[in-house]
Design a protein around this nucleic acid. Structure first.
Length: 445
RNA sequence: UCCAGCAUAGCUCAAUGGCAGAGCAAUCGGCUGUUAACCGAUGGGUUCCUGGUUCGAGUCCAGGUGCUGGAGCCA
């Protein structure tokens, strides 16, 4: 009697008869010998059919199997160095095969395809090896982030998706009709996090975030997932300490749990193995000086133009890339100009033109993956900022309330899941890091 | 919103202004160790759309549409 197993367990069943349920990933043959690579979600295994070892009908069926046909195969497991797959090294000698459905002509062939075609077929593309590997790593990154927070005294407290007003006034929001009233899809849970720390001390929220910016680059999605921790009695220095502990723990977990997937992606593991705390820390001032020095020293006029910067300007992505390229590990850039950052960020004592903000830039050109700050906790100062910026006071009344009832110094940040996945996987584009990307020109499938 | 590039078979791409082509996929046949197998055969086209130049346009020109990358903005 065959035991029903999944492919990731195959090594435990050497010499035994097993039943596998899955899909034909690839088939090739040599006459009376047929090779079927089968997937079941946990891995890929080669199944081999010899004509003389099975019924005429079953062999004819194997020979006619199309890519992605669904099948139930029973056979005996044997170790064989030649057998490809994940984990590989074992193959199944087919004794019986049951067809569940013969797949129609499958659009994604083993040859190369263009991005538009693959994105149009995203519902099928997720079955491909690379996409399978990426999305499994994504799941591990998310669980590693959450596990670390859960284990270190942070409480998951969900924040609303439908919100009455902008979190930050800067970017464009998706507006929806809330029974006749305008409402917006959340672009951050931070303000609610700030309320929640009053009850729980250290919290985080995790969920989708929406930006209606017409950005069309390899780093942008209209709908992306963000994890935002927020901590009472936390300084900017505490925040950087915590971020580097969290990020390095996540990278370590991925290296531990997802080696086969990283191999599929041909990721340079040494780059990831070097991601250990502490990370580098430089001020905005120093970053600007470094950029200006770079501009002065380069002979490339295009680079000169791209990297040109005056103190007080925010970094564009070429600046971030150039700064990150100066370091072999992630680098914190802190104390940005107050004018280019959000209204709630705490000014630096004695230097109000800069604020207690910090961005974390990932190495290898991946740019900003986290952004955070110490928040203003003084009631009068926050009132003044809301007034100067011209925010509608009524909408922020509850937020201002938080500074009236036991206000404490606090800090928090947001980490973009897709950018983190792109960096850890070494991908050139963010679109493959989320199962179904929402982009400027795409919401299908 | 701005800048640049691209659009030909199901897919990836060729084709000097002069017969619309290849590889893969599909279909049929062959092959007992394939790794994107190989060998032979067959079918497969609104060359993105509209208009123009020309004896003749996939190719040149104008407009449009779609897509891709980048800038700004951001995670």
């Amino acid at each position: 009697m065959a035991t029903q197993i999944t492919i990731n367990q195959i090594a435990d069943y050497d010499g035994q008869e097993v039943e596998l349920r899955g899909w034909v990933y690839h088939r090739t043959g040599k006459g009376r010998l047929q090779f079927v690579q089968m997937r079941d979600g946990t891995g890929i295994v080669q199944c081999v059919a010899f004509k003389k070892e099975m019924t005429e009908d079953d062999f004819a069926l194997v020979k006619s199997l199309t890519q992605e046909s669904s099948v139930i195969i029973t056979g005996s497991v044997r170790a064989d160095e030649r057998a490809p797959g994940i984990p590989g090294g074992y193959e199944v000698g087919i004794q019986n095969i049951e067809l569940v459905q013969m797949a129609e002509e499958y659009p994604i062939t083993p040859k190369e395809h263009g991005t538009e075609f693959l994105m149009d077929n995203r519902h099928l593309w997720v079955r491909s090896r690379r996409q399978w590997a990426i999305l499994r790593i994504r799941a591990t990154i998310i669980s590693a982030l959450r596990n670390w927070l859960d284990d270190n005294g942070y409480l998951l407290v969900d924040t609303p998706i439908i919100t009455p007003a902008a979190g930050e006034e800067t970017t464009t929001l998706f507006e929806i009709d809330y029974f006749g009233q305008p409402a917006f899809l959340a672009q951050t849970g931070q303000l609610y996090n700030e309320a929640n720390i009053g009850s729980f001390g250290k919290v985080y929220c995790f969920g989708p975030t929406f930006r209606a910016e017409k950005s069309k680059t390899r780093r942008h999605l209209m709908e992306f997932w963000m994890l935002e921790p927020e901590m009472a009695f936390f300084s900017l220095e505490d925040l950087m300490d915590m971020e580097e502990q969290l990020i390095s723990a996540v990278v370590a977990r991925v290296l531990e749990k997802r080696k086969p997937e990283l191999d599929i992606l041909e990721r340079d593991l040494s780059q990831l193995e070097s991601i250990t705390a502490p990370f580098y820390r430089i001020t905005y001032d120093e970053a600007v000086e470094r950029l200006q020095k770079l501009v002065a020293e380069t002979d490339d006029p295009e680079q000169k133009e791209l990297l040109n910067i005056e103190w007080g300007e925010d970094f564009g992505s070429p600046h971030e890339t150039a700064i990150a390229a100066m370091f072999d590990k992630p680098v914190f850039v802190y104390h940005y100009p107050t004018a280019v950052k959000a209204f709630y960020m705490q000014p630096v004592d004695g230097r109000p033109e800069v604020c207690r903000s910090v961005d974390l830039l990932a190495p290898e050109g991946y740019g900003e993956i986290t952004g955070g700050s110490e928040r203003i906790y003084d009631k009068d100062l926050l009132e003044e900022r809301v007034r100067t910026i011209g925010l509608p006071r009524e909408a922020y009344a509850w937020y201002l309330d938080l500074r009236r009832f036991g206000s404490v110094p606090h800090a928090g940040f947001g980490i973009g899941i897709e950018r983190t996945v792109a960096w850890i996987c070494g991908l050139p584009h963010i679109r493959e890091t989320i199962p179904y990307a929402r982009m400027l020109n795409r919401m299908y499938p």
